[in-house]
């Protein structure tokens, strides 16, 4: 069973693309893309168990910390850069977005939407930092140091002059709950953006 955001990305990736997956975990997405769409590429990961799982699947995995950048990848080295659920854990998400769109013309990013109504209610009514399915950590030990909302990310893309090719939000792990209508900033738990360099 593939995570719902991975399932959607899987559908978006073109046949035979060269993909770089930042924070590729156990290589689930890349392995599925290689099998179903003849995709090639690399995953970057720092978790030892994730790296071993990638090797077992035959996914090319490089042990590399995303906060150190992507300098070892040349401009336009790939067709697409994917980063699922890692943006919020980076030291400088904005610089990473620049890097991703240097390495490829297009990228797909997913992250937990902090403006999801349950998070708002948690903070609004209880007065504590939200702890949820998509944000399972306590404030003091969370790796998620740059939480943002669906709207925040859209604004960042706009400020950088990037074009949003596609966007959607999902709720939990349930398939078929992906939508870009109906107040995504309020009702989306996971945000997913497909962003491209602005056409010249």
């Amino acid at each position: 069973m593939m995570r719902a955001d991975l399932k959607l990305i899987h559908d978006w990736v073109p046949q035979g693309a060269r993909v770089l997956d930042l924070g590729c975990g156990e290589g689930t997405l890349l392995a599925a893309l290689a099998r179903d769409k003849q995709v090639t590429g690399f995953g970057l990961e720092i978790d030892p168990d994730g790296i071993t799982a990638c090797l077992a699947k035959g996914v090319n995995v490089i042990e590399q910390n995303l906060d150190e950048g992507l300098a070892n990848f040349e401009d336009d080295a790939c067709d697409l850069v994917v980063m699922t659920q890692a943006l919020q854990a980076l030291r400088r998400p904005d610089l990473m977005l620049d890097e991703m769109l240097r390495v490829a013309g297009e990228c797909i990013i997913t992250f937990p939407n902090f403006a999801y109504w349950r998070h708002r209610a948690y903070l609004g009514f209880k007065g504590y930092m939200p702890v949820s399915r998509s944000l399972p950590h306590a404030w003091y030990d969370t790796p998620n140091i740059h939480l943002s909302t669906f709207n925040d990310f859209e604004r960042l893309c706009r400020d950088k002059g990037l074009s949003i090719v596609d966007r959607a939000v999902g709720i939990g792990d349930h398939e078929g709950h992906w939508t870009s209508r109906w107040w995504p900033n309020l009702f989306g738990e996971i945000a997913i953006f497909r962003v491209a360099r602005r056409r010249a």
């Binding site: 090797l55 995995v61 070892n72 990848f73 080295a77």
Partner: peptide, 19 residues
């Protein structure tokens, strides 16, 4: 080792790396 890995990436070869 990363020097080798990065050259392999640039050369478009299949490579995995663990430190």
């Amino acid at each position: 080792s990363k020097e080798l890995v990065n050259a392999l990436i640039r050369a478009n070869k299949a490579v995995s790396y663990a430190n």
